[in-house]
Nucleic acid binder design. Structure first.
Length: 719
DNA sequence: AGAAAGGTTGTTTTT
DNA sequence: CAACCTTTCT
């Protein structure tokens, strides 16, 4: 007998899933294969805990890999009847630890207004510290040091514990720079991504009462994508879950693809040893892909040695075989993809949003973009240059960061003379001198500089203006809305005039980005009922491109295979399957690393619902040089039964010939009605170009004006 | 002080 | 090939 409050799940979950949902107490490991409905299990489990076990939402902690996954989960839970989820903690590891750190910052000597530094900021500090030590950037790259520090922090190695190995001549430098880097961060009230995880661990280890508070609070802990947790995340989990020991982790060792970021596949491999008495469940039924796709993916990942045994199956139909395209170069590859997309849209009535084009490195997206642009196929790119990392955006954010946390020298230097206000290099280095002498931060150094006799009147006047500008905003920070503050700010400091007066296409684009920033601030204010600067800054620091990606958009999605984790598409293209690219050459020689590349390929392949395409090229431009390539070893490993080798480079050329028209082709005239596979019906406006470069401008009823290359447009005449 | 030009360098994947 | 840094020119 079910009451209104109870969970109706018979139709929604299979017996295995139901068993997992209702098994609530003690440690649980769910080994969930690709497409086996693990997110569904987690959401139902949360609902079950609240509705059936009467657990208060605020006592449940759920950790996901991306904000996007967290938001989707929240939405799904909100759709359950009678379920209040306002107080649920659902978020990424980083956002959760950041939340904890904001509250408890003082226990590690931080103020709760700390700023979060990204890789660029970190590099600036490393360069500065290197300069202090007199290390030249010529001999050792700041980026190399950055990577080593990052690696150390990922593995919870402090500067004191950093081991200088005798085979690495840079380790000495790394150790000393690392140590200074940490001091710098602390004295400027800044943290990096790793600190978000490390600092709470430090707090918990040194303040048992604080740890107890969180241990008591979170009676149930659920973790998604557990295979990609690193040492710090694992440590945090162990600390928080210790008391109640109700921890449910869900993951798939075959999808562990973040080893380079410190993820430890051993966390999932050894979970049942660390958490004694852990109950292990397996979800092996795949709901997503066709038999062909799943079989193909299995035949690939079976080549890995370090993995848990599993037996994925699907009741879905055989489906089409996997298409393998062998193309002459990346232009051909892009073209092959475009043609296949058009074909499928036409024949199978798919939408543009059903397609994803995946690649190993972001750099590959450029040629694909060009190709799709020429073909007039709408696309969106996820990743690459992140929105909040664009220069114009970071400039404005730097103002906000300084206003909120004036200890932040890095961001202060970024804006002190932007837009130009007559504070040049000489003045800045004078200020730095003063600051160092008095042992204060730059901001206070400026204040001292205003009074200093060693500076020319002109500079002192400019410094004064700048100082009081920031002071003014610091004093009104709580009096006016965030929205208003930012708008006045960019007017007052002259960023808006600066960007608009240039008038180039580039500056116009930048101005548009600023507008986008402003509207994202408006959104945030609305959502948070007038949120704070800190809140906004935190949100965007932890935001990824994927989080803003709109999967309902009518456009083909381009992204890295890493970004595709957890998503699904009707048709998926995996491109650039060449030795050195996929697997990437840094990872070609070590068998463990090749296994991770193979898992990455597996992740990409299992995103596809009913059609998978693979492609490689014979020649590829790299480093500005055209090089011959060798096709990926992975293509030799897989079971050929699943593959159809349908495309040869010649065939693409044939298509071109078939569609080629002459400039004289009189069928194309302004005014005629035409139909396009993707854009629908439209009217020809004008014709330009000759030979195979004939372009026509068509005004489509549904999507407006588009310029198309006749050669590829495949237009049908309607009159 | 700031822009323009020239040289050099390097490509992984991201919260 | 581009992004980035340094130098040089105005």
């Amino acid at each position: 007998m079910k009451t209104k409050n109870k969970l109706y799940w018979d139709k929604e979950l299979n017996p295995e899933q139901r068993e997992i949902v209702s098994y609530t107490d003690g440690p649980i490991l769910v080994l969930a294969g690709a497409g086996s409905g693990k997110t569904r299990v987690i959401t139902y489990k949360i609902a079950y805990l609240i509705l059936e076990k009467n657990i208060l939402p605020e006592r449940i902690l759920t950790l996901t890999f991306t904000n996007k996954a967290a938001n989707e989960m929240k939405e799904r839970i909100a759709s359950f009847k009678n379920l209040k989820c306002d107080n649920l903690w659902i978020g990424t590891f980083h956002s959760m630890s950041c939340r904890i750190l904001r509250r408890e910052a003082k226990f590690v000597g931080y103020k709760n207004t700390f700023n979060i530094y990204d890789e660029n900021d970190q590099l600036k500090i490393i360069k500065e510290v290197m300069g202090r030590f007199g290390y030249s950037e010529k001999n050792i790259l700041p980026k190399t040091i950055y990577r080593k520090i990052d690696y150390a922090k990922n593995h919870l190695v402090s500067p004191e514990n950093y081991v200088v190995s005798d085979w690495d001549r840079y380790d000495n430098i790394v150790k000393s720079v690392y140590s200074e880097y940490e001091k710098f961060m602390k004295s400027h009230n800044a943290v990096d991504f790793n600190d978000l995880l490390i600092k709470p661990i430090e707090i918990f280890n040194t303040n048992p009462s604080i740890l107890k508070k969180y241990q008591n609070k979170f009676k149930y802990i659920l973790v998604d994508e557990f295979q990609d947790t690193n040492l710090a995340q694992y440590q945090l989990l162990k600390l928080i879950s210790q008391k109640h020991n109700n921890i449910c982790i869900v993951g798939d060792d075959d999808q562990s693809i973040y080893g380079w970021r410190g993820a430890e596949i051993s966390n999932i491999m050894n979970f049942d040893k660390e958490f004694k008495g852990a109950k292990i469940f397996k979800l092996e039924r795949n709901y997503r892909s066709t038999k062909n796709i799943l079989g193909f993916a299995q035949s690939l990942v079976n080549n890995n040695k370090n993995r848990r045994d599993k037996n994925l199956w699907t009741p879905n139909e055989e489906g089409e075989k996997i298409s393998l395209g062998s193309l002459t170069d990346e232009k051909g590859e892009s073209n092959w993809i475009a043609q296949n997309i058009k074909k499928e849209i036409f024949k199978k009535k798919k939408r543009l949003g059903d397609f994803a084009v995946l690649y190993r490195t972001n750099a590959q997206s450029r040629v694909l973009e060009e190709g799709f642009y020429n073909e007039s196929i709408p696309y969106t790119i996820v990743g690459g240059v992140r929105f909040y990392e664009r220069k114009e955006i970071k400039d404005i954010l730097a103002y906000l960061k300084v206003i909120s946390n004036p200890d932040d020298d890095i961001n202060l230097k970024r804006i002190i003379n932007y837009p130009a206000r007559g504070i040049g290099k000489t003045t800045i280095s004078k200020i730095e001198e003063i600051s160092k002498e008095k042992g204060v931060n730059l901001y206070q150094g400026i204040k001292l500089g205003i009074e200093s006799k060693n500076l020319p009147d002109r500079s002192r006047e400019n410094l004064k203006l700048f100082y009081y500008l920031i002071e003014k905003y610091r004093s009104i920070i709580r009096k006016i809305s965030l929205n208003e503050l930012v708008r006045t700010l960019i007017e007052e400091v002259g960023i808006s005039t600066l960007l608009r007066k240039e008038g180039t296409e580039e500056s116009l684009g930048r101005w548009e980005n600023v507008q986008e920033l402003l509207s994202s601030i408006s959104d945030y204010s609305k959502q948070k009922n007038n949120g704070s600067i800190d809140g906004f800054l935190e949100k965007i620091s932890l935001f990824s491109d994927l989080d803003v990606w709109d999967n309902k958009q009518d456009a083909v999605t381009f992204m890295t295979v890493h970004n595709a984790k957890g998503l699904e598409f009707s048709s998926v293209f995996i491109t650039g399957l060449e030795e050195g690219l996929f697997p990437l050459y840094n990872y070609m020689n070590d068998e463990k690393e090749v296994e991770e590349e193979r898992r990455l390929f597996y992740v990409g392949a299992t995103r596809a619902i009913d059609k998978l395409y693979l492609s490689y090229v014979v020649k590829r431009m790299r480093f500005g040089e055209i090089k011959n390539t060798k096709c990926s070893r992975f293509l030799d490993e897989i079971d050929r039964r699943f593959i159809v080798n349908e495309i040869e480079p010649i065939k693409v050329r044939k298509r071109k010939l078939k569609n080629k028209i002459n400039a004289k082709d009189e069928r194309y005239r302004a005014g005629r009605s035409v139909a396009h596979e993707i854009f629908g019906i439209g009217r020809i406006i004008e014709i330009e170009g000759t030979g195979e470069f004939v372009k026509i401008l068509v005004d489509f009823e549904a999507v407006g004006r588009k310029k198309l290359l006749v050669k590829y447009a495949n237009l049908k005449f309607m009159d």
